[in-house]
Design a protein around this nucleic acid. Structure first.
Lengths: 343, 343
DNA sequence: CTGAAAGCGCTAACAT
DNA sequence: ATGTTAGCGCTTTCAG
């Protein structure tokens, strides 16, 4: 039971233990570990220190360092349902990878949309001294974040506040709708239907706006009867598509509000014995791999740039000089076309 | 420019500032904040302290507390691709909610399967004094986690080490395969096909085993020609199903290795003018909402218990007395039947 | 009922 | 080229 040269108590070795073993001061250890250039430590000393570190299996204690430096190297991510939704997990990935590149880590909490959890989560994160906060939502909509969120640099992702007083990163729905429609037009389609979402939300208005603008730009008439609204699920889209396709002057292309709807549209087209894309072309929105790549033929669609949004959010936070906060810019991220085989 | 009773420097107020304002010692503030029962503080003092706290807008500094108490209240989650995959995001949710219930937070990093990132991530997490570690994978398979992972209580989720020397939480594939098959049998089916995955992995063997056991238990013969293997995508499953259904003695039910494959199987059945489930019943695996609920008719399937696995992992970690580590038990989590309309 | 004092493990002036 | 020293903000004996 002798404790010869063992670290004190039962704790993991501290820098002090390393210093003792190496026969130097704790300061010196800190200098060599952190490669402090202002203090030129002799190579011989460095070697002794590293040897002691390895002998002891010492590992820096980031908590102690954070306390001292007042830098937690941590970013907080509060989301409503993002984590439960395949739509947007890539947002977390983008944020996490960007954080990683800066030696930061991500503290995540999912609030399931509950206000009280949201408020508590914010408190917990602030207590943990996060250096920046991302407030993200599953689908693009207006929000009122918990009070006190601006205590630390914050950025909204996939959402915005009514008065646009907080910086936000949101998908460019208009461009997305435009690109989808334009893609169809450039393939020669003239009668392009649009099966839109029915519940009012930015995506609905933005994509419709893009659809109209593209028609206008290419000199095509806007035909109200070609635009249908329904809930964004395969079932309802199936009915909408069937109605559209049973008309004598049926559209030759259908732009779907999202990939789930495209699934129903595929069913309707096949049921009528028509072929995709020869008889009717289909373009979706979201780029849900799971659906888009599995459908036959694989679905051409517009991607919601989740990864990019997460990445940009973190990069913006990192670009900030200490103590400042981000200007309330609304960053619109383009929604790229993902070509597969349905157009 | 007078600084009367303002917190020192430019920092957020500390407990010391609160104490001064309330006219008590820092100790007293700590006692009232933490509701320390061993020290009975008078109600009047408590009120003064709380008043000061609110006046100053003081918030505890969790980093300082962690340093002092040696408890970070943090769990680490290292995953390969889990975060990118809709399959398993619910695992993170389960883990996060369980952590939350214990006032812990989750530090997550996705390694994209890269060994070096994995190793670094582990180091970072240990430096941050995580009190437990979850090592999770996207799909159920064998792994060799980074060295040093057992420095802190660790549990594997959806994976295991060859010698089973680390505790693991894994889906009960055999039971899942059994349940799927039994469900079909109980609906009166006698010729049940199984379109299995072709790449060797625990899920393939487990589900097949369950399929065979169910047949045996119900006195049905195992017919090798009814079992097909292909890559788990809709396309290949489409072909496999067509082959199966074009036989004169076609099966009346098809058990699909996963929901993606079920998508292709649906297409094949419909293409042949058959109805689901009247002419042929279909059961999937995974319970990918996105597919299962959108398919027509909605797909009956077996759920991969991701949420439950994440939750259990954290709860096991939390149940651990300080300083101990989990016994290397392999916890099999049941895969429940999710009834929709395809059987 | 309350306070003094000693750290937790580390960084960073400032000395030497 | 390296050591002394003073904290970072908090918890927790131990005294009174």
């Amino acid at each position: 039971m002798n404790d010869q040269s063992r670290p004190k108590r039962n704790r993991p070795p501290s820098m002090y233990d390393v210093a003792r073993l190496a026969g130097v001061s704790q300061t010196t250890v800190s200098f060599v570990v952190n490669n402090v250039t202002s203090a030129a430590i002799s190579q011989e000393t460095r070697d002794r220190v590293w040897a002691a570190i390895h002998a002891l299996g010492w590992r820096p204690n980031a908590v102690a360092r954070s306390l001292r430096t007042r830098h937690s190297q941590t970013l907080g991510l509060i989301s409503d349902e993002v984590v439960t939704s395949p739509y947007a997990v890539r947002m977390i990935l983008g944020a996490q990878e960007a954080a990683w590149n800066n030696r930061q880590m991500l503290l995540v909490v999912n609030t399931s949309g509950q206000q009280d959890i949201e408020q508590t989560a914010l408190q917990f994160m602030l207590e943990r001294q996060v250096e920046g906060l991302i407030y993200a939502t599953m689908y693009h909509h207006e929000v009122t974040p918990p009070t006190g969120i601006t205590t630390v640099p914050t950025i909204l992702v996939n959402c915005f506040v009514a008065d646009r007083s907080l910086p936000a990163i949101i998908p460019d729905e208009v461009q997305g709708g435009y690109t989808a429609t334009e893609t169809l037009i450039l393939r020669g389609h003239r009668r392009i239907a649009f099966i839109n979402e029915i519940i009012p939300m930015p995506a609905l208005f933005g994509r419709l706006e893009g659809y109209r603008r593209a028609l206008t730009d290419y000199g095509l008439p806007f035909d109200q009867s070609l635009v249908r609204s329904c809930h964004s699920n395969a079932q309802d889209a199936f009915s909408a598509a069937r109605d559209l396709l049973e008309r004598p002057d049926r559209p030759t292309a259908i732009f779907c509000f999202n990939d789930k709807m495209a699934m129903g549209v595929y069913d309707a087209i096949k049921r009528l014995g028509l072929r995709i894309p020869q008889d009717v072309a289909v373009i979706g929105f979201d780029n849900l791999e799971l659906i888009a790549a599995q459908l036959y033929p694989p679905l051409t669609t517009i991607e919601l740039p989740h990864y990019e949004m997460g990445k940009r959010a973190v990069e913006l936070l990192q670009s900030l000089p200490a103590g400042e906060s981000l200007p309330p810019t609304q960053h619109y991220i383009p929604c790229p076309l993902i070509e597969r085989a349905s157009v």
